[in-house]
Computed example of a mutant assay.
Amino acid sequence: MNVSDEELLTDLFRTITLMRKSFDRAMTEQGASLAQTKVLMCIKAQSGHARAVDIAEVMGIAPRTATESLDGLERDGLIQRIPDKEDRRVKRLTLTPAGEAAVAVSEPLRRQLMAKVLAILSPSERQHFHAALQKLMEGLADG
Results as ranks from 00 to 15, higher is better:
Ala101Met: 09
Cys42Asn: 14
Met27Tyr: 10
Gln30Ile: 07
Arg110Ile: 02
Arg51Leu: 06
Thr15Gly: 13
Ala115His: 05
Ala131Ile: 03
Leu113Asn: 06
Ile43Cys: 02
His49Ser: 12
Phe129Ser: 14
Arg111Ala: 10
Gly48Tyr: 04
Gly48Leu: 06
Pro108Ser: 07
Gln46Asn: 15
Asp5Tyr: 14
Leu18Gln: 10
Arg111Trp: 05
Leu8Trp: 07
Ala104Arg: 07
Val39Asp: 11
Leu34Met: 06
Met41Ser: 15
Thr37Ala: 10
Pro63Phe: 01
Ala35Phe: 14
Arg51Trp: 03
Leu121Phe: 13
Ala141Tyr: 03
Arg92Cys: 05
Thr65Pro: 09
Ile16Gly: 11
Val3Lys: 10
Thr17Ala: 12
Asn2Pro: 15
Met1Asn: 09
Asn2Ile: 14
Leu140Gly: 08
Thr17Gly: 09
Ile61Met: 15
Arg20Gln: 10
Ala102Thr: 04
Leu18Val: 10
Ser22Gln: 06
Thr96Arg: 07
Asp142Cys: 07
Glu100Ser: 10
Leu118Ile: 06
Leu113Cys: 04
Asp54Ile: 03
Arg110Glu: 03
Asp11Tyr: 08
Arg88Phe: 08
Arg92Val: 00
Leu12Asn: 02
Gly99Leu: 01
Glu57Gln: 13
Thr17Ile: 12
Leu113Gln: 01
Thr28Val: 08
Gln112Pro: 01
Ala26Lys: 11
Ala132Phe: 06
Val105Leu: 14
Val39Lys: 13
Leu9Ser: 03
Met59Val: 02
Thr10Arg: 15
Leu34Arg: 08
Lys116Ala: 12
Asp84Arg: 01
Ile61Glu: 05
Pro108Tyr: 03
Leu34Asn: 02
Ala26Glu: 14
Leu78Glu: 01
Glu6Phe: 12
Ala131Phe: 04
Glu86Tyr: 04
Ile82Val: 13
Gly77Thr: 06
Leu40Gly: 10
Ser69Ala: 11
Gln134Ile: 02
Glu107His: 13
Val90Thr: 11
Met114Val: 11
Phe23Ala: 07
Gly48Glu: 05
Pro108Gln: 06
Leu12Ile: 15
Pro83Trp: 03
Ala115Leu: 09
Leu133Phe: 13
Thr65His: 12
Leu133Asn: 08
Leu136Pro: 07
Ala32His: 09
Gln36Pro: 01
Leu18Asp: 15
Arg92Gly: 01
Leu70Gln: 02
Arg64Gly: 11
Arg81Pro: 05
Asp142Ala: 15
Leu78Lys: 11
Leu95Cys: 11
Arg51Glu: 09
Thr15Pro: 05
Gly77Glu: 08
Thr28Phe: 06
Ala115Asn: 08
Leu73Trp: 09
Met41Pro: 03
Gly31Tyr: 00
Gly77Tyr: 08
Glu57Gly: 01
Ile61Tyr: 07
Ile79His: 08
Glu7Asp: 06
Thr37Ser: 12
Ala104Asn: 02
Glu57Val: 00
Met1Arg: 12
Ala141Trp: 02
Glu6Pro: 04
Leu133Lys: 08
Asp71His: 13
Ala45Ile: 00
Leu12Phe: 12
Ser69His: 11
Ala35Trp: 14
Pro83Ile: 00
Thr96Ser: 05
Leu34Pro: 00
Lys44Tyr: 04
Thr28Asn: 09
Glu86Thr: 04
Val53Gly: 08
His130Ala: 12
Ser122Ala: 05
Gly143Gln: 14
Ile82Met: 05
Ala132Ser: 07
Arg20Cys: 03
Asp84His: 10
Ala131Tyr: 04
Ala50Ser: 04
Gln36Trp: 03
Gly143Leu: 15
Lys135Glu: 07
Thr94His: 07
